[in-house]
Write a protein that binds this DNA or RNA. Structure first.
Lengths: 227, 227
DNA sequence: GTCTATACATAGATAGAC
DNA sequence: GTCTATCTATGTATAGAC
């Protein structure tokens, strides 16, 4: 699988994502016309992610968001009750999509070696397709209220659990060496996250997403596969 | 080398660091008595790092800092001209110490294999000894003004260059495989950074700093060493 | 549904007393 | 050198017109 194949496979239209957000937040969204809500949610989220790729969510004022999204300050408050809720809305939706797509993709693997490759590739490809979401989710997690922070941590551990399970399976089937499983999963995750945290670096060096994914697979297999 | 040996070897007293900051910022520090400055700088920086391990620098108000440090709001402004300058002061000093200690330690290695181990260990041990500094420097880098951001990026690339040089040397001496050097250095760096970015995770799992360093060395050597 | 105007809160920075 | 009091700017959120 290459990045281009992945993109065709996984349909991540903005309308669909926006529709899911509407489903989950009917209470706090005051506007009634579905078409309008979906349209404006897209504009609001796009604007937020664009601004927050340059400065922090805290530093983004409602005035900034109004200017970038084209909606007035007053109108914005028809789509969320306060600024913190907007943060939570984007974060929780991002986490949900990520987990769903990842598990769907990995289910296609037949053995641990294949599953490991699929897991690495899907994660990197997904973070490429939704790089502003991933960056935002990672970098702004600490500014969430306590209970939402808990959910973010659970989500991080859940993704890691996917790798832990694959590696355990590989050891059981004697395809992988008997390494410290939790540590192996943790450092693989660290390498995956670097792709969207340091995009500027890889872009400057002209490293493609396929290059990067292949290299992470090379490192993981060098560490895990029995020689 | 273990973490305990490293700590004895590298003396990182707060007074010394604070003294260096005074040297570099004589202009903006209005207080004249050296002893007072050094004492209060320590309190200010400790307070900042403590607050910013829980919330962002932006979210920390001067009032917060006043309460935590024990100095009044007015007094604080005798040690920096504005809030942004405080951010720059802490960041630049953190980067300087890190680079100095790292290069000093690595110079002790005699061959690429030994140097690679030394580089990995010193980096992880240093980030353990100064974990609040490292975390702060990483997480708040994006909130720096443009020109200071440039310096932060240069510093990141400089640390990575250390690894690139070691790996190149290893390949030349036919101790290492002929891998993509920049990518290898980048993913090693990613693993090193995970130690201070996800401390909560490793603490919960009771992974010691020595465990972690050994595992990263294991991954790096599995990827690089000729079998 | 969306806008403009505005109330209200909070934060950074300074002046002047001690 | 440090404090308290205060000025001013900026930002969130709402009310009421359109």
């Amino acid at each position: 699988m290459t990045y281009n194949e992945f993109k065709k496979l996984v349909n991540l239209s903005k309308e669909e994502i926006s529709g899911q957000i509407l489903e989950r937040n009917r209470d706090s969204i005051k506007v009634k016309k579905e078409k309008k809500v979906i349209d404006n949610l897209i504009r609001i989220i796009d604007a937020t992610l664009a601004i927050c790729s340059k400065k922090s969510f805290q530093a983004m004022s409602i005035r900034d968001l109004s200017a970038e999204s084209g909606l007035s300050r007053g109108a914005l408050y028809s789509y969320f009750t306060n600024k913190e809720e907007l943060l939570i809305l984007i974060q929780s939706q991002g986490r949900e999509i990520a987990y769903r797509v990842l598990t769907e993709q990995i289910a296609k693997g037949n053995d641990p070696v294949e599953k490991l490759r699929l897991a690495i590739k899907s994660h990197i490809y997904l973070s490429e397709a939704m790089r502003t979401w991933f960056y935002f989710t990672y970098i702004e997690a600490r500014n969430l209220p306590k209970d939402e922070q808990k959910r973010a941590i659970e989500s991080e551990l859940l993704t890691e659990k996917i790798f832990i399970d694959i590696i355990n399976e590989g050891i059981k089937e004697e395809a992988f060496r008997d390494v410290n499983v939790a540590l192996a999963a943790a450092v693989i995750k660290a390498m995956l996250q670097d792709w969207y945290l340091k995009r500027w670096k890889y872009r400057n060096r002209k490293v493609s997403v396929d290059n990067y994914a292949d290299f992470v697979i090379y490192v993981a297999e060098s560490t895990l596969l029995i020689k």
